[in-house]
Amino acid sequence: MILMTGADGYLGWPTLLKLSAAFPEERIVGVDSLARRKWVEEVGSVSATPIESLAERVKSAAACGFSNISMLEADLTDRDTVYLLLQTYRPRAIVHLAAQPSAPYSQINGERANFTQENNNQMCRNLLWGLYELNLKTCHFIETTTTGIYGAPEMDIPEGDITLLGWNNKPERVPYPAMATSWYHMSKCQDAANMRLAHFQWGLPISELRTAIVFGADTTETKLDPRLSTRFDFDFYFGVLPNRFVAQALADCPITVYGKGYQKKPMIPLEEAATSIVQLVLQGPTEELSIYNQYTHLASPVDLANALQNVTKRKNMNVQITHMTNPRTEREEHPMKMAHERFQTCLLPQKPMSMEQCIDSMLDTLMPYKSVLKAYRDRFISASSN
């Protein structure tokens, strides 16, 4: 069987459905603490798309042919809970997506910075130690970390490691320097280091997907029935840039570009992000620790805003672009040169949609929820920007 954490999340739920379709003869068990729902409520926002309870999600999935899914509510920071899950199910693969995933949320104050790192790192450690201590050392452990591990250096970024010359001019592969720019991203640096340690010490088969900004409103599976829709966050804290821009356009608000907006960021559509995770489960582990830069597009906020304007003009929508003081500590201009050949070759079976195609699809999917976006339009920017 396959165990997937973060199964109630934005990326988790579509991935769970794809796993169900790819492995119809296996039990797919999803685990989630429902914390994402609480965090978004805490910052005064909601998902634009309606999402059902865990029990209703399972019923809806079964009615649509995804009959091998189970869902459990559980806190993976609790060691005993994790060990009970692993003892009960003894999975052959774990897809670990559970995390507090928001950099802005982790930057609010020291309490949330502490929570983000303790929450994310404790879950990863519990799972790794559980696999070792319960003798599940052939289980393929897959975690989505983030391309934000690399920061924004003034040099080319490889897929994971770099090669340096050591003693006697012998080549030595070492991790690329962790230059994260938020407390959330730094939590994933620690996860990456702990996974490397677990692989080195115990030989656990581990694959790390350094996931870019995931954007989009649906996948092939979630389009099958409205009850299968995934959440769509659009607020300053949990709404990633492309999703927030589309939400602003539908709410008849100007697109807010922070600062100059020329810093390139790696991104990937929701469909390709979920598909490539399933592809990695299908592929199985390698003997070495495998690291992939999981992205398909490099785009700046200005690129996104211009692409959105192009699409909305064709739909007879009038969208304006405005620049605001950047509340984040980041470079105003950055080219972001990042390798992803291994990811493209091994895990991307089809050519991804263009940015404008993705934006067009999002607009169509979210059009019925314009009233929700308008009602929460004050959540588009941070309180410090008001």
Rank of each mutant, 00 (worst) to 15 (best):
E221H: 13
K265I: 06
Y237W: 13
Y292G: 12
P266T: 10
L224M: 13
K223I: 06
K265M: 08
K223G: 03
L241I: 11
G284T: 09
V257H: 01
I268D: 02
A274V: 08
N243S: 07
R231M: 13
F245D: 04
G239A: 10
F234D: 07
T211W: 05
R227F: 10
V214H: 03
L228F: 07
L282H: 12
R244D: 02
L280S: 12
I255Q: 10
K265W: 12
T219M: 03
R244G: 06
T222A: 09
F232T: 14
F236G: 10
E288F: 13
Y262F: 14
I213T: 15
I277Q: 11
T220R: 08
T222P: 08
A217L: 02
I268P: 00
T220F: 06
Y237V: 09
G261S: 04
Y262K: 15
A212D: 02
F232H: 13
G216I: 04
E221T: 02
Y262Q: 13
K223Q: 15
G259F: 04
V278K: 04
Y262V: 00
T211P: 01
F245R: 03
V246F: 04
A274T: 15
E288P: 07
R227H: 14
Y262W: 11
N243K: 02
L280R: 12
D235Q: 06
E271I: 01
Q294P: 05
N293W: 06
N243C: 09
C253Q: 15
A217W: 00
N293K: 10
F232L: 14
D233H: 00
G261K: 02
P269F: 03
T230E: 04
L250Q: 03
R244A: 11
F234G: 03
L228Y: 10
Q263L: 11
V240F: 01
D218A: 15
Y237M: 10
G239N: 07
S276W: 06
A251G: 06
V240E: 10
A274Q: 06
L224C: 08
L241T: 12
T211Q: 14
T275A: 13
T222D: 11
F232Q: 10
Q248S: 06
I255K: 06
S229R: 14
Q248W: 00
P285C: 09
V240I: 07
F238Q: 08
G261W: 06
L224F: 05
D218S: 15
D225I: 01
T219G: 05
L228H: 05
M267V: 00
E271C: 04
G259E: 01
N293Y: 12
L224Q: 13
N293M: 12
F238I: 14
F234W: 07
P269T: 12
